[in-house]
Amino acid sequence: ITGLKANEWRTKYMKTRWGTCNIIAKRIWLNVQLAQKPPVCLEYVILHELTHLIEKHHNARFYGYVAKFMPDWQEIRARLNNLRLDAMN
């Protein structure tokens, strides 16, 4: 729905992040622990990482784009982060 596309995506275990994006290679990494979360949390992380392909920094433009495609992103992010990553280990 965004028109953005990563060249590649992979999963791995990460202790401190839900996802990462290499904007040069257009590669997204997703934390395997997202499989334990509701699907909307995975959708948020994918949208977040794809948005980095057009805006590197977490600024107003970045969050404006995220909000365009997921107006309730703040609620979803809060839900995702209520359980701290380090508390799951």
Rank of each mutant, 00 (worst) to 15 (best):
I1A: 12
I1S: 11
T2C: 06
G3E: 10
G3T: 08
G3H: 08
L4Q: 06
L4T: 07
L4A: 09
L4W: 09
K5C: 09
K5F: 05
A6Y: 04
A6G: 06
N7V: 04
E8Y: 08
E8F: 10
E8P: 00
W9M: 08
W9F: 11
W9N: 01
R10P: 00
T11A: 06
T11R: 09
K12G: 06
K12Y: 03
Y13P: 00
M14W: 12
K15Q: 14
T16P: 01
T16Q: 08
T16S: 14
T16W: 03
T16D: 00
W18S: 02
W18T: 05
W18N: 01
W18M: 11
G19Y: 07
G19Q: 08
T20F: 04
C21D: 10
N22G: 12
I23L: 04
I23C: 02
I24N: 15
I24G: 09
A25W: 05
A25I: 10
K26N: 06
R27C: 11
R27E: 13
I28M: 12
W29K: 00
L30N: 03
L30Q: 05
L30P: 05
L30K: 03
N31P: 06
V32C: 14
V32T: 15
V32M: 12
Q33W: 13
Q33I: 13
L34R: 11
L34P: 09
A35P: 00
Q36Y: 15
K37T: 09
K37I: 04
K37A: 13
K37H: 07
P38Q: 13
P38W: 03
P39G: 08
P39A: 14
V40F: 01
V40G: 00
C41F: 04
L42W: 07
E43Q: 15
E43N: 13
V45G: 06
V45N: 02
L47M: 13
L47C: 11
L47P: 11
H48Q: 03
H48S: 07
H48G: 02
H48I: 06
E49D: 10
E49K: 04
L50I: 03
L53Y: 13
I54W: 06
E55K: 09
H57S: 14
H57I: 00
H58F: 05
N59T: 10
A60M: 08
A60D: 12
R61I: 12
R61W: 02
R61T: 13
F62R: 04
F62K: 02
F62E: 06
F62G: 05
Y63E: 09
G64K: 07
G64W: 01
G64N: 11
V66E: 00
V66Y: 03
A67H: 11
K68A: 15
K68Y: 10
M70W: 05
P71T: 15
P71S: 14
D72K: 14
W73V: 04
W73H: 15
Q74S: 09
Q74V: 11
E75Y: 02
I76Q: 03
I76F: 03
I76P: 01
R77H: 09
R77L: 14
R77F: 07
A78V: 01
R79V: 00
L80R: 09
L80A: 07
L80Q: 09
N81V: 01
N82S: 08
N82E: 08
N82G: 07
L83F: 02
L83K: 11
L83A: 06
L85W: 07
D86L: 05
D86W: 15
D86A: 10
A87Y: 11
A87W: 13
M88Q: 08
M88I: 11
N89S: 14
